[in-house]
Every structure is written in structure tokens, then in C-alpha cells.
Nucleic acid binder design. Structure first.
Length: 289
DNA sequence: GAGGTCAAGTGGCTCT
DNA sequence: AGAGCCACTTGACCTC
């Protein structure tokens, strides 16, 4: 930033255009006034508008770069509009400039110039209303609104720009909040699944220790997709106790009693082998104090 | 006095 | 080249 200002200032200085950072210096060391009418306009415009005076007096950034070609053109545009309040500001600015030159009193001029425009409630309300209709304005709408509110079109333009920026910022905050909540939910889900995974790993480990060849359930089928009890070959969950294989052990009667649960749960709870594994796994995960 | 709000300045980008 | 928009910034003013 400072670098940009410096380079900008250097360029302007080389052209004899750079103004010092405050009015006092500006007035005590007046730069050679350029011959181009546009630059004269720029300088007068700079003093004419109350808000601009303020900024120019106190902002080094502004005082330096206000002489860029683009801004000279943009200011000329504003200067030639001359609408309502603007005209009074022109008069005010002219008299102010005269007093500055006459009295050579920068401090007084600076304090006199320090006023910031605050839109009235009515102006704000009307602007808000228009913003709800359209977030951007065409030049005609801008002119109409400016006349209606007794403001300069540039002020309308600025208000809409700032309003769009605020809306965007607000939306970004909402999005950010939403993503934060998503992140929290996913973190919690991830934690839960990690825990579940650890439990399943522990279970698998003990099963492997007891039975050299663990049933395929432990190694092949993810719990979530298991649809059949690996021990008794029954579909568990429907509660209809459908028998799919030839096995008909005492366990089947137990299965019949608890047929409404998911297969994994059914298997772990109803088969003695699984019960043992579960018990050992629980002891392993939560060792007794 | 610190921090927030908001009008306004500035430079860069895109579009026509 | 000029106009319009945007991101970033400044500074006056306000509130606590």
C-alpha cells in the first residue's frame, strides 16, 4: 500500500502534480498549476465538495492519487452535473477556497471542512426500498433517485455499491456459519465412526484369538451391509425367522426369540461365541479400574 | 479511548 | 477509451 502510494507520488511529483499530505503543506508549497482545464477542474472539484475536502485534507492516499487520469475524467463528470445540493456545495466550496487563499489558514479550513454526510432516515428507507427491488441501477434510475433524494448520482452509486458489499459480507458470514456447523456435525460423526471401528477391530482381534479361522462375517462383510446372521444363516431383522440354510441348532430358537434386530446385533447378542467375544472386547476397551 | 458503522476514495478488472 | 462494478481502504462520526 505504502509502496503503491510512493510510486504514485513519485510519478505525480515528476509531473509537478503531487500535493503534500495535508492542506497546510499544500498551501505553503503550492504545486505549479497545470495548464490543462481538466486538471484545473480536478483541483477545484477537490475543494468544492464538502466530503471530498475532508478526505483530501486528511488522506495522503487520496491526495496523491486523485490526479490520476481516470479520476480526473470521473470528477469532470461529477463537476458538470450541478444538481441541487451540489450547487450549494459548489458555492460553499468556492467561498471556502477563497477564504483559504485569503487567510492562508489551513487549520481553520480543515476544521470547517470536517463534516461527514449522514443520510436521513427517509433517504435510507427509500434507498433500501429501491435496493430490494433492484440491487443495481441503470443511469436513468440513478438520476431519478438522485433528484428524488436531493443527492448526487455519485452518492446514489456509492450507496448501492456499499450496500451490495454489505449484503455480500452478510451472506459470506451466513455461509461460513453453515459450513462451520457442517464441519462440527461431520467431526462428531467421524468420531462416532472411529469409535465404532475401534470396537469392531477389538472384537475381531479377540475372535481371531479364540477361533483360528474367524467366520467370514469378521473379515468380509462390513457390519452396515450384513443382511444375514453368519452363524445360523438366517435373515435377521424382519422377525419372520426365515430359515435359509440347513442348520437347526439350539441357537435357532434363540434367534427366533430375537428376530427383530439387525443381523450384526442379533449375532453378537444371541450366539454364545459372539457373546464371549463381546464380553472380552468390552473388557479390553474399558479395563476395570 | 476502542471499536463499529458507513460514506467515500482508489485502483483494477471486465465489458462494450 | 469509457463506464460500471468490485475489493480494499480511509476517515468522520457514533456508541459503549
Amino acid at each position: 500500500m505504502a509502496e503503491k502510494e510512493d510510486s504514485c507520488c513519485d510519478t505525480a511529483l515528476s509531473l509537478g502534480l503531487c500535493l503534500p499530505t495535508n492542506l497546510h503543506r499544500r498551501l505553503s508549497n503550492p504545486p505549479p498549476l497545470p495548464a490543462q482545464p481538466s486538471l484545473i477542474h480536478s483541483l477545484s472539484d477537490e475543494i468544492i465538495y464538502g466530503r471530498k475536502e475532508t478526505t483530501r485534507l486528511s488522506s495522503p492516499h487520496s491526495s496523491v492519487s486523485s490526479f490520476s487520469t481516470t479520476n480526473i475524467i470521473k470528477k469532470e463528470r461529477i463537476l458538470h452535473l450541478g444538481v441541487g445540493e451540489e450547487q450549494t456545495q459548489v458555492q460553499r466550496g468556492a467561498s471556502l477556497r477563497a477564504s483559504i487563499v485569503d487567510e492562508d489558514d489551513a487549520e481553520a479550513a480543515a476544521s470547517a471542512a470536517r463534516k461527514k454526510l449522514r443520510l436521513t432516515k427517509e433517504q435510507s428507507a427509500l434507498l433500501e426500498g429501491r435496493f430490494k427491488e433492484h440491487t443495481t441501477l441503470n443511469p436513468r434510475q440513478k438520476q431519478t433517485l438522485a433528484k428524488q433524494l436531493n443527492l448526487r448520482p455519485r452518492q446514489i452509486e456509492v450507496w448501492f455499491q456499499n450496500r451490495r458489499a454489505r449484503t455480500k459480507l452478510k451472506q459470506t458470514e451466513v455461509d461460513c456459519d453453515f459450513l462451520r456447523r457442517c464441519c462440527e456435525t461431520l467431526t462428531e460423526e467421524n468420531r462416532r465412526l472411529q469409535k465404532e471401528l475401534e470396537e469392531m477391530k477389538a472384537l475381531n482381534k479377540f475372535a481371531a484369538a479364540i477361533v483360528p479361522q474367524p467366520p467370514p462375517f469378521f473379515v468380509q462383510l462390513p457390519a452396515a451391509t450384513l443382511i444375514m446372521c453368519p452363524s445360523c444363516d438366517r435373515i435377521a431383522g424382519a422377525g419372520d425367522n426365515r430359515k435359509l440354510a440347513t442348520t437347526n441348532s439350539a441357537d435357532d430358537r434363540v434367534i427366533a426369540a430375537g428376530g427383530g434386530m439387525p443381523p450384526t446385533q442379533h449375532f453378537l447378542i444371541n450366539h454364545p461365541f459372539a457373546q464371549l467375544c463381546t464380553m472380552l472386547a468390552i473388557q479390553q476397551i474399558q479395563p476395570a479400574p
